[in-house]
Amino acid sequence: MSTSRRDLLSQSGKWLFLTSAAQAALEFVLAGNAEAAPTYNMHTHWWAMTIDINKCIGCGNCVRACAEENGVPKGFFRTWIERYDVPSWEMEHPEVDSPNGGMDGFPEKPIKGKSFFVPKLCNHCAHSPCVQVCPVGATFETPDGLVLVDEKYCLGCRYCVQACPYGCRYINPKTNTVDKCTLCYHRISKGLTTACCEACPTGCRTLADLKNPKDPVHDFLRTNSIQVLKPQMATGSKVYYRGLDGSVR
């Protein structure tokens, strides 16, 4: 059977048009039942975390709990604790250490000035620098205020690792994609608190839902001196620190 060029072109044109039309129709049908989480309505939440510096004892429970809950590879951290040692007046030069992310606690050492612990994690910024640089839409801000990574879509290009001003992202050596704190999305969407908050013995960390008018976070934010990390970068950080020292970077 011989096919003229005209026939071939017209046939292939028809097939292309038909398949795309069918695909569009299928998408339309599927979109009808895409949201399959009847119990969790993400539009009624706006997640955040509060950290009370005066309560952190540097025990490392949060770091261990996070690693266990999320399968964080050894040597990488979604949350970690830093120990600051600030000489009395040289605020620009604090001595900071974080042995193994604080996972095994902090060995006692002689201090020069004032010393305290600062737990850190992803700030779940409302205007995240990391989301802005992702070339493929693999990291994004969710309607409930989290910054998440789609590991199936991530290329591992590391743009976001560089863009995060807080150093909260790492490349998971198992998947070669970027990984970070999800604020335990799989827990908080089931009504639980995050693993780090669950394991924190002093109540230093508290999960907060800013859209819930009954959440004690509103009192906490109103009645205390609150600071976020690197406010000058206008990232819209949602990890609120009480009693944060000016030397903390």
Binding site: A34, Y40, G137, F140, L148, T182
Partner: peptide, 15 residues
């Protein structure tokens, strides 16, 4: 579905 990303990723992370 919700923005410039795969909406189903949310469901997958929640699961």
């Amino acid at each position: 579905q919700y923005g410039h990303y795969r909406g189903n990723a949310l469901e997958e992370i929640r699961a």
